[in-house]
Design a protein around this nucleic acid. Structure first.
Lengths: 146, 146
DNA sequence: CGCATAAGATTATGCGCGTAACTATTACGC
DNA sequence: GCGTAATAGTTACGCGCATAATCTTATGCG
């Protein structure tokens, strides 16, 4: 493969990551949220209460990260963490009312963010884009391939 | 816009960011580098010595981040930081021999990473992909639009 | 000139994320 | 049943990245 292409691709992904995350942080700041926390709230709002291991899997980040993020969200009152009666190791995390309300707000912000992101892209591309992203994600995911 | 599409897009970008970065970190670890540092070395190798403000611009991250990253890379001997004689505020940063050698190594790893990333994507998409990424990056960059 | 403003860099602080090491529970094979 | 392995979670530590505040040097304008 052409090294220039590789560099453009990898650097492109890196730049998009930084900018998209920074922009997300700007939009979330008025809600008192930090980038990454929105994913927790959206996931819980979509699937209902989960134990942290399931959250970790759904979010695609490691258990220690989930521990800290859920702690913070619990401290700000958007989440409740209770021991799982059926499995004394597990702690199940659920949205509070304030968390549900935030999830709705986030969904609106995410439409805004998505519209910003895809501005000036051809419509044909928009159809494929989520699939492309997903393919690349799983391609590069060590857990499934290696 | 459809909220489901927005969620798929934003979450897709977030997941790709995490996984791509994690995979990059795995590849860079044997070289003693952390994800993000490779961009510094590649940039310096391509353009020659830069002052930190230029580096910050080129990398798309903020000056304080550059300060810390260059400090670390200087500590590991891959970079030299010298005061700019023409401007006493500025510090110019340049690759050492070890840094140049690393840049070559990184370029190979990045071909590997890019090949992994685009596996199973149609060839027609590959032509457009860097452009797409760049468009989305600039779309979401607060500095140019806002 | 001199002074206000801008530009380069750093420090402090905080968050998300990762890996490694550890504890506590559950499940499984014998 | 019991001991071993797998699983859920946490703690400790480090890095990249951001923002806010500060210090220093350059530069513009009167």
């Amino acid at each position: 493969m052409d090294p220039e292409y590789a560099e453009a691709l990898n650097q492109g992904i890196r730049l998009l990551s930084l900018r998209h995350r920074t922009r997300a942080a700007q939009l979330l700041a008025p809600l008192g949220l930090h980038a990454g926390q929105e994913a927790v709230l959206l996931e819980l709002d979509r699937t209902g209460p989960l134990i942290q291991a399931q959250l970790s899997e759904a979010l695609g980040c490691e258990p220690p990260s989930v521990t800290l993020m859920t702690r913070k969200l619990e401290a700000s009152g958007h989440i409740r963490r209770t021991p799982d009666p059926a499995d004394k190791r597990a702690t199940v995390v659920a949205l509070t009312d304030s968390g549900k309300a935030l999830a709705d707000q986030i969904r609106k912000l995410w439409v805004t963010l998505a519209e910003e992101t895809i501005r000036d892209l051809p419509a044909a591309m928009l159809k494929q884009l989520p699939g492309i992203l997903h393919t690349m994600s799983t391609n590069v995911d060590g857990k499934s391939s290696a």
